[in-house]
Design a binder for these strands. Structure first.
Lengths: 198, 198
DNA sequence: AGGCGCATGTAAGCCGTTACATGATTCC
DNA sequence: GGAATCATGTAACGGCTTACATGCGCCT
């Protein structure tokens, strides 16, 4: 009998699926090579994108992806005080990303904190209700102000018309974000009308 | 980011804030008294509402709420084989709910699995991309078919015009859901145009 | 001298999902 | 006899947030 060697990373067993966070990172790295720190900076604030994560999630996830052969890194003695690891997707990583993109998706779990508040809005006075909705509108106006310049920049890039270019997909998500916030703002107006009129 | 700072009493002991799930349950119980099982059934499928939870989350949360005096129960020997606990909000529970509703909300964390896929849509062929978006549209059409009858029913209820009635708040969230799905469907059409044309 | 940006990690704890566990009644 | 519904819980596990930990170089 052969006692298993302690280090046996190869993939002969049924591999657990890549987490959503893993796919987000693969998607970033498929666009350009980045260090862990760069990934963390991009995902700490969801600039124009659709996902966020803290650095404490990213470093372990990068290690997991690497142990499965989906990404690899080279050490660079670049800008910072300590050596930094520049990551890139492997062929297997790109394949995993592509099959995740086209995999059939289940019904997404509905869980909207903002609307949960609204759902209990009947418990407070009309004035309080109004101000809750006005604050909500203000948040969405700010989000729009953040997205619109990115959207303009993306749309003026001719690559955003090429369906195989990352810019194309960026334009799609930015457009989705803008439409969503605009729809919410219209809904807020509709609600405020109901509070006033009746 | 999610847990909103609750009441913050000036000189009292630092009470941990009620979780979002706790507020969802308080919101349900503020509308009508329910057993744990009933709550679980309502939240297992997000019927017209905006939150979901499994029964394994609900029973412990009810115990937590009760230990803080926000809900209380009476044992009823009703329909089922074993005694069931009928829960109701207390005065403190209602107060906690109201202060949570009006508490200032931070910027919500953006994390949209569906759009994350779209953001990597450039990695696959145009035909695959099309079908991903078409499947997405189909899911949102189904969600609309689920919401529209509830919306109709709610709107025909005269209580939905009274801002202090639960039906009013239900109408608000149903309207938000419908508008959101409609906006997404329009976005899907816009995307499919981009795939075809150009 | 202190704070910020670079750059990487680990640990504690909450929240949520899935699965385990029990047991009575009603319907097929 | 078996499956579904009623009715309540616990346990294991993974994802995410917050905080801890380290340490260099630059700017004020």
């Amino acid at each position: 009998m052969q006692p298993p060697a302690s280090t046996t990373p190869p993939h002969d067993e049924a591999a657990p699926p890549v987490s959503t966070l893993g796919c987000a990172i693969l998607g970033l790295l498929a666009r350009t090579e980045l260090t862990g720190y760069d990934i963390a900076r991009r995902m700490d604030r969801p600039v124009g994108y659709v996902w966020t994560a803290g650095h404490s999630q990213i470093y372990p996830e990068l290690a997991r992806l690497e142990s499965r052969g989906l990404v690899r890194h080279v050490v660079v003695v670049g800008a910072g005080p300590r050596p930094t690891k520049r990551y890139a997707v492997t062929g297997a990583g790109r394949a995993a990303l592509e099959s995740w993109v086209v995999a059939p998706a289940g019904a997404p779990t509905v869980r909207e904190p903002e609307l949960l508040r609204v759902w209990s809005l009947w418990t407070v006075s009309a004035e309080s209700g109004r101000s809750v909705v006005e604050a909500m509108a203000q948040r969405h106006r700010l989000a729009l102000a953040d997205l619109r310049p990115q959207h303009e920049e993306c749309r003026s890039d001719p690559r955003s018309e090429d369906v195989t270019d990352p810019q194309f997909a960026s334009l799609l998500t930015l457009e989705a974000g803008i439409r969503s916030h605009e729809a919410t703002l219209q809904w807020c107006d509709w609600v405020l009308d109901r509070f006033s009129g009746a």
